[in-house]
């Protein structure tokens, strides 16, 4: 078995006094798409913030390619090859598409797919149609694409994709799904959080189900889809 790309052991996280994550263990292997599923407030976004170093109040071990990153500042974590696409997209609305992409740029990484503005605009044809549009004039779906592309400019090993289908029109959700599969085909590893079972089922190899900060299910996507009890209890159907 290959060593996991991301290995999380005993992750706890809290906001002030309120603990959100409890002893979380998870693994992502190279070129996998893994989904973290769960309802609102289950701790999906908190997991990503804790992994990325935005949430300081945490304990446990996080290893990226066998290297501990849990004590590093955010920018160092990003420079080790962990990419982050936050759920609220957070485009620099003052900057154009190309400028946004440029800010995500990092040197190529050995063992990770290498992206340039040209190759990305191939994958995201709708961004190619508006290279000089400022972020403030883009639709939600377009912003979502731009955030993903901007993160890929850093040539990450693994991308944390926080609820990509949230608040996006159904037709765009379909396009997003296709896009994510395309990225996977190009060798990208993705950890995504999702509430939408059918969207996740179309993309993910494996899934973890979170409930109030605990992992309550772990298995392949097929196993999860087949397990009606878990789906009914912890997911929005």
């Amino acid at each position: 078995m290959t060593i996991p790309l991301l290995e999380v052991t005993g992750l706890n996280a809290a906001y002030g006094q309120a603990q959100i994550l409890f002893d979380m263990n998870l693994q992502v292997r190279p070129n996998e798409v893994v989904a973290i599923m769960g309802r609102n407030g289950a701790g999906k976004s908190t997991t990503f913030k804790a992994l990325m170093g935005h949430l300081k109040n945490r304990s446990g071990s996080v290893k990226l390619r066998g290297e501990s990153i849990e004590k590093l500042p955010v920018y160092q974590i990003a420079r080790r090859g962990l990419g982050f696409v936050p759920e609220d997209r957070r485009i620099f609305s003052d900057l154009t598409v190309l400028e946004n992409l440029d800010l995500g740029r990092q040197p190529p990484r050995e063992g990770a797919a290498e992206w340039t503005v040209e190759t990305l605009l191939d994958v995201f044809p709708n961004l190619a149609a508006m290279p000089n549009r400022p972020g403030s004039d883009m639709s939600g779906g377009e912003q979502q694409m731009l955030t993903i592309a901007r993160t890929l400019m850093g040539n990450p090993y693994l991308v944390l994709l926080d609820e990509p289908s949230e608040g996006v029109a159904p037709v765009i959700v379909e396009r997003l799904a296709k896009l994510i599969l395309e990225l996977k085909a190009k060798g990208l590893t993705i950890l995504l959080s999702e509430q939408n079972l059918s969207f996740a089922a179309a993309l993910a190899d494996r899934a973890y189900v979170l409930d109030r900060g605990h992992i309550v299910f772990e298995g392949t996507m097929a196993e999860l889809s087949a397990n009606e009890a878990v789906c009914r209890a912890y997911l929005t159907m």
Binding site: V74, Y75, A78, R90, F92, L103, Q106, T151
Partner: peptide, 18 residues
């Protein structure tokens, strides 16, 4: 441009490795 980006959202700028 980094200055402008950080003016709007410095947390995101850090997430991009700056």
């Amino acid at each position: 441009r980094l200055i402008r980006a950080a003016t709007q959202d410095r947390e995101m700028v850090a997430s991009l490795g700056v």
